[in-house]
Simulated scan of single mutants.
Amino acid sequence: MLLAPVLDEDGAPFWEYAAQGELRVQACADCGELRFPPRPCCPHCRSFSGEWVRMSGRGRIWSYVLPHPPLLPAYAAQAPYNAVVVELLEAPRIRLAGNVVAAADAPLNSVDPARLRIGAGVKVTFGRLGELAVPRWLLERP
């Protein structure tokens, strides 16, 4: 079994929007600052008012790693694969973890690791992981 995200009350809207094919980030309804991961209180102004703002889904690879060997047996068949941290273009302080894949439901090893570069442009897609739609990333220049 591949690792599934932990669902909690603060992050539930993130997964509901993902199921609709939308990447949304929590924002403070008072000061407007974006925050991720989702939490009940704004770290900037301490307001408990929040809303969910739609993002373009475009970003850049901020960091990546190729696990050798995979630490979890469920991932061994897909090695070598990538794990990336993506910085959103319109919100550079917001970074999401995921994988660069060739298509939404492609295997984690569907992109040649030699094609990955720090700063490479990516766009979000949503793949299925059990009942959840999870963000994955496509290279903008395939």
Results as ranks from 00 to 15, higher is better:
residue 8 D to Q: 08
residue 20 Q to T: 04
residue 47 S to R: 05
residue 72 L to N: 15
residue 89 L to Y: 01
residue 87 E to A: 15
residue 135 P to D: 08
residue 18 A to M: 06
residue 138 L to H: 12
residue 133 A to F: 03
residue 134 V to H: 13
residue 32 G to P: 01
residue 11 G to E: 04
residue 119 G to S: 11
residue 103 A to E: 14
residue 98 G to Y: 06
residue 14 F to W: 13
residue 2 L to R: 15
residue 26 Q to T: 06
residue 63 S to T: 14
residue 113 P to S: 08
residue 1 M to V: 09
residue 21 G to C: 05
residue 52 W to K: 07
residue 133 A to W: 02
residue 85 V to M: 15
residue 71 L to K: 12
residue 128 R to L: 05
residue 62 W to F: 15
residue 55 M to K: 03
residue 64 Y to S: 04
residue 89 L to I: 07
residue 104 A to R: 13
residue 37 P to H: 05
residue 14 F to A: 02
residue 126 F to M: 03
residue 138 L to Q: 12
residue 13 P to L: 03
residue 108 L to T: 05
residue 40 P to W: 06
residue 91 A to K: 07
residue 68 H to C: 01
residue 127 G to Q: 11
residue 110 S to A: 13
residue 64 Y to V: 02
residue 90 E to H: 08
residue 21 G to W: 11
residue 84 V to R: 09
residue 122 V to C: 11
residue 114 A to I: 07
residue 110 S to N: 13
residue 120 A to Q: 08
residue 122 V to P: 13
residue 4 A to S: 15
residue 120 A to R: 13
residue 4 A to M: 12
residue 129 L to C: 13
residue 5 P to E: 09
residue 22 E to W: 05
residue 101 V to Q: 02
residue 89 L to K: 07
residue 22 E to K: 15
residue 127 G to L: 13
residue 40 P to T: 08
residue 78 Q to Y: 12
residue 65 V to C: 14
